[in-house]
Amino acid sequence: MATDTLAPSAAVTAPKIKSELMQQRARAARIFLVPMLIALAVVAGWPLIRSIYFSFTDASLSNLDGAQWIGFGNYLRWTTLDSGAVRYRGLLADPAWWNAVWNTVRFAFISVSFEAVLGMIVALVLNAEFRGRGLVRAAILIPWAIPTIVSARMWSWMLNDQFGILNDLGMRLGLLSQKVAWTATADTAMTAVLVVDIWKTTPFMALLILAGLQMIPKDIYEAAEIDGVHPIKQFWKITLPLVRPALMVAIIFRLLDALRIFDLIYVLTPNSSATKTMSVMARENLFDFDKFSYGSAMSTMLFLIIALLTILYIWLGQVRFDGGDR
C-alpha cells in the first residue's frame, strides 16, 4: 500500500515520466479534495461535535450554556438499591428506545427492499425505447418532486376513512368490503407509511439506476445479441453487474434516509409505541420534552446505528465503495 500511487497504467512505461505524472496527479488530487473537505468541515463540524458533546451533558434547551458534563449518564447509569438490586437507567436500558430502533430498522429494511426492486423495474422500463418516454420519465418523478410536508398530508387526506378517495376507490373496485381507518391503528398505519414511502422514493432509486443503465456501453448488448444470449440472461450477466455500483449507492442513500424517517410517521400514524421511530423519539426529547441531552444521546446513537448498518451493508454486499484496487 504505497501512498499516492497512480492507477496502474500500461501505456506509460518510462519510470521517470511515471513518477512525475504520479506527483502531478497526487498534487491535483489534494487540490481537488481540499475545498470539498473544508466546505464539509465548516458546515458540519461544529453542529455534529456540539450534538455529540451535549449527549454527555445534562443540557436543557432552556439553558444550553449551563450544560454540565455528566459522562455516560445519558447512555447508561445505575443505582444500587438498599436491597442490593441494581437499577439501570439511561438510553441503553430504555425499552422504548430499543422498540423504536426495531421499528425503524424493520421499516427501513422493508421499504428499501421494495424500492430497490421496483426502482430497477421502472428504470428498465424507462431505459427501453418507446414513444412518449420523455413524458413518462417526467411523470415518474412527480412523487419525489412533491414536498414531503405536502405529500404526507395529501396521503393522510386520501387515506381518511370517511372522505378519503382510496377507501372509496377500494370499495368501488370491490377490493375493500368496508371503509378502513388506515391511519387509526398501528398495523394499518405502518402499512400506509410503507406504501407512501415506497411510492415517494422509488423515483429516486429508479433515476439513479437509470443513470447507471445509461452509462453501460450499448455495444456490449449488441455483442450479446449477436451471440444469441437470452434477454433474461443478459440482465443477470451484463446489466446487473454493470449497474450494481449505481444500485448500491442508491440503496445506501435510501437506507440513510429510511433510518432517519420522520415526517411520514409523524403525520400518518397514531403517536404510539408501535410506530415510533428513532427520529420521532429524538425530536420528542430534543424539543417537546425538556430532555435536550437525552435527545442528543438518541441522535448520537442513531448516528452510530446507521454507521454500523451502513458498514455492515457495505461489507455484506461487498460493495467496493473505495474502488478496491483501481
Binding site: D161, Q162, A181, A184
Partner: peptide
C-alpha cells in the same frame, strides 16, 4: 366502533 367510527382514533 359503536357510535364513533374506528377512524376517530386518528
Amino acid at each position: 366502533g359503536s357510535i364513533s367510527p374506528e377512524g376517530n382514533l386518528a
